[in-house]
Write a protein that binds this DNA or RNA. Structure first.
Length: 154
DNA sequence: GCCAACGTTGGC
DNA sequence: GCCAACGTTGGC
């Protein structure tokens, strides 16, 4: 079992949006970065733990606990000319972009970026490292456990 | 809106 | 394969 942090812009798909979806499950559309795609394709298994993170918003932070709910499969938005995620260079017989389904298990308080940064034990958390822009990053078990503890101590 | 950091593109 | 130019991310 592996752990991940997945960023979503709340204007696109907030944790509340995901919770409102059928089975609280959403297809994680729009990943257009090879490293992030490879994490989904090569690293993720159904049942992996996911920290649901809000980015590009007033208060960026971890806002929910989720799980990986599918293996990777082609992201349909890459073939949709009307989609902002359309990729004209991707071929149906050889899709370039993949996604997984993500199921929200619980909404949490917002464990904000400044609070995350305040914990020396989280220093190595990938999203806290300088210049990191990856929308999907692996999370070490020790970080996962600590973050759970912080979320439980509201 | 700014800007640092990083990824991608494309000419050579 | 190098690398400059450009585009994007995302916090502030």
């Amino acid at each position: 079992m592996n752990y991940w942090l997945m960023k979503s812009e709340p204007e696109e798909c907030s944790v509340d949006d995901a919770l409102a979806a059928k089975n609280a499950t959403v297809p994680w559309v729009g990943v257009r970065n090879y490293q992030a795609r490879n994490f989904m394709r090569d690293g993720m298994q159904v049942g992996d733990g996911v920290l649901f993170y809000h980015s590009s918003c007033a208060e960026p932070g971890i806002v929910g606990i989720a799980r990986v709910a599918s293996t990777a499969y082609p992201d349909p938005t890459q073939f949709d000319p009307a989609s902002p995620y359309h990729d004209p260079k991707s071929k149906r017989e050889d899709p370039r972009w993949l996604l997984v389904d993500v199921q929200v298990l619980q909404k949490t308080r917002n464990l904000t970026l400044p609070e995350l940064r305040s914990h020396p034990a989280l220093e190595d958390l990938v999203i806290l490292r300088k210049g990191n822009r990856l929308s999907i990053t692996p999370v070490e078990a020790r970080h996962w456990r600590l973050i759970h503890k912080l979320l439980g101590s509201v």
